[in-house]
């Protein structure tokens, strides 16, 4: 009933409009307000070697201290469903870090799921583990032209 009334009122407003108000332009969230996580991955990752994956949560150039939730999601591209979710509760000097040993060569992605300052961001970085041949990488690049990663949408972090 309320909706009906609202509808009727709005329809009338369509006909009778007057007056002016302050500028209503919705500004998109300023680029500076947006938070982001800068993901740091070693340039080369060998098999069975312990490496650290790290990320820093930032707002513009400022490091964000108060992070409500931080999670790494690691996945081997092509390996469906075996994505690994790792919560990190403590930052060390603003840096969230995990140690990881990869035992299978291939192309991986690491995605960070960050909730802070009322925002949620989930940037994702891709990297190579082990010594892939040039062909193997090219083959992958070609494949990834037409298809994005195939993760099972495992967003259980809520």
């Amino acid at each position: 009933m309320k909706k009906l009334q609202k509808t009727i009122i709005l329809l009338f407003v369509l006909f009778l409009i007057s007056g002016c108000a302050t500028n209503l332009k919705e500004k998109d969230q300023d680029q500076l307000d947006r938070i982001d996580a800068e993901i740091m991955v070693p340039e080369k990752i060998q098999l069975n070697e312990q490496v650290s994956l790290a990320a820093e949560v930032k707002q513009g150039d400022e490091v964000v201290e108060e992070v409500d939730e931080f999670q790494f999601e690691i996945q081997r591209v092509g390996g469906e469903g075996d994505n690994e979710l790792i919560n990190v509760s403590q930052a060390d000097n603003g840096i969230y870090q995990i140690k990881k040993v990869f035992s299978e060569a291939g192309v991986y992605t690491v995605q960070t799921h960050v909730t802070a300052m009322g925002q949620h961001v989930m940037p994702k970085k891709r990297f190579v583990v082990g010594n892939l041949t040039e062909e193997e990488i090219n083959e992958f690049l070609e494949k990834s032209q037409t298809e994005e990663d195939t993760s099972g949408g495992n967003h259980q972090h809520h």
Binding site: T109, M122, K124, K125, N138, E148, S151, G153, H158
Partner: peptide, 23 residues
């Protein structure tokens, strides 16, 4: 080097977007 072409940020996917739509 091709490894550099592959290392780096990648766009998000439909899965991420349906997740955002839900939340």
């Amino acid at each position: 080097p091709t490894s550099t072409m592959i290392n780096g940020y990648v766009p998000l996917t439909l899965n991420d977007m349906t997740f955002i739509a839900e939340t």
